[in-house]
Structures are given as C-alpha cells and as structure tokens.
C-alpha cells in the first residue's frame, strides 16, 4: 500500500465568525497524505493545523473545498455515512487522552471494537494483542487513574490502532507528555505507518518529532508555507 494516495484535499477553506468579524482560518489549502507515511503538520499556534485535521477527517465540514479520503468524496456523504467512514477507517489520538475513568485498559479498546460489531472473544483477543504491541502487556487491567500520562496515551493509541484504521490523525499527541513518553508515542505512530501501511497525519509543534516524519508540512496563517519530503518521494504503485 505504501506510496498510494490516502488523502487528497483541494482548496480547503474555513472561517469562524466571532461576533460580526469573520476570521479565515484555512485559506484554500491543498493537502495530500500517503499510505505508509508519517506526514507531519507543523506551525505556530493558531495557524489552522487542528482545523485542517478536522476537515480532513470528517469531523468538521470546511466552507469550501473537497476531501478525497480513500478514494471517497468525504463531504459529499451524509452525516451518518461520515460517522460510518470514521468508524471503519479512522483512528484519532488527541492531546488529552479521553479515556473513560471507569474502564480498564483492555475495556477501553474493547468498547470501540464493540461498535465495529467485532465479536466479544475476538475483541478481547485483539485488545490484548494491540495493548501488548504498545508495550502495555503488564497494564491490561489498570484504569486510567492508575496509569501515567504516557501509558494513557498508549492506551488511546491502542484504542485507535485496534480498529486497524487506514487513516490515523494525531493532534499534538505528545504535548501533554514528557520527552521520553513522547518518543515512545511517536515511535508507535511511525510503526503504524510502516507496518500497517496507514496514512498517519501528525500535528505537532515539537521539532524533536521531525526525526520520525517522512514528510513535513509547515503551515502559517491558514496557508501551507512549505512541504518537504524527507524520506524521498513515495513509490507510486
């Protein structure tokens, strides 16, 4: 799958109304992301990175432009179908971990799989497997309160990966973590791209993460300033 276009967005624009003023946050952004690559979006705070991710992932409709995701025109779909698309194909990792306080690590993962109609025993097997893969084999029964920030983020990653998504969106996944935990997290995302062939879009302003990027896109003021392929152009198959 490596090298295949996963996301192809054209002319994305989005503005927020604050009182009578309209603030343009995205100004005609074109964006692509490939399977098997970590695409890193960097830029100062308020430059529109999160808004871009929201538009790419079907969380917030842009005012203008279109998003082709896995070959489907995302914003032409009905709302229910967009939910369905995310359920089938998208994984999310946020700055906050957003784990249910009452569920242990295994249950957090199983909860999501339940909605994918994965059978109970299969869901359990997959949950344990993916938690093992993120290095939490010894933490299966722990609830969020008993986990460190880095461990919580790894549970969140496991939750996202367990669905076997083709698209993974991470918005500042390491900014609430210490640098060691941050390294672990970005490595896992990198691994997901390499081993699973997922298209991983990571928003960050942590320059240390650049080492794991295949491609770095700089944004400022709602526009893309630069787009650098680090690991060379993807092999088109």
């Amino acid at each position: 799958m490596t090298g295949k276009l996963a996301l192809n967005a054209k002319g994305l624009s989005k503005g927020y109304k604050i009182g009578k003023l309209k603030q343009q946050v995205l100004k005609g952004v074109d964006f692509t992301a490939y399977h098997g690559q970590v695409t890193m979006v960097m830029g100062p705070s308020g430059s529109g990175k999160s808004t871009l991710i929201a538009a790419l992932s079907g969380l917030m409709k842009p005012d203008e432009g279109e998003v082709m995701a896995l070959g489907e025109n995302l914003w032409k779909k009905k709302r229910g179908k967009i939910d369905r698309f995310r359920l089938d194909h998208c994984g999310f990792i946020f700055q906050g971990f957003n784990l249910f306080p009452s569920l242990n690590a295994t249950q957090q993962v199983e909860q999501v799989l339940k909605y994918q109609k994965v059978k109970k025993s299969e869901a359990h097997r997959r949950a344990v497997e993916v938690l093992d893969a993120v290095g939490l084999k010894h933490r299966l029964k722990q609830k969020p309160a008993e986990l460190s920030g880095g461990e919580k983020q790894r549970v969140a990653i496991a939750r996202a990966l367990s669905k076997m998504p083709s698209l993974i969106f991470a918005d500042e996944p390491t900014s609430a973590l210490d640098s060691v935990s941050g390294q672990v997290v970005i490595k896992l995302l990198h691994q997901a791209a390499k081993e699973r062939g997922a298209a991983v879009v990571v928003v960050t302003h942590d320059p240390r993460l650049e080492a794991y990027a295949d491609r770095v896109i700089h944004m400022e003021d709602g526009k893309i300033l630069s787009d650098t392929m680090i690991s060379g152009p993807p092999v088109i198959v």
Partner: peptide
C-alpha cells in the same frame, strides 16, 4: 463530566444514536 470521552467515541465513528 465525561463529555470528552463521549466526543472521542464520536470521533472514532460511534454514532450519536449509540
């Protein structure tokens, strides 16, 4: 108090009905 957790489920594609 748990709205963010619910929102994260929404993001992962769990429908409003669920």
């Amino acid at each position: 108090a748990n709205i963010k957790e619910f929102a994260s489920l929404r993001a992962l594609g769990v429908s409003m009905g669920e």
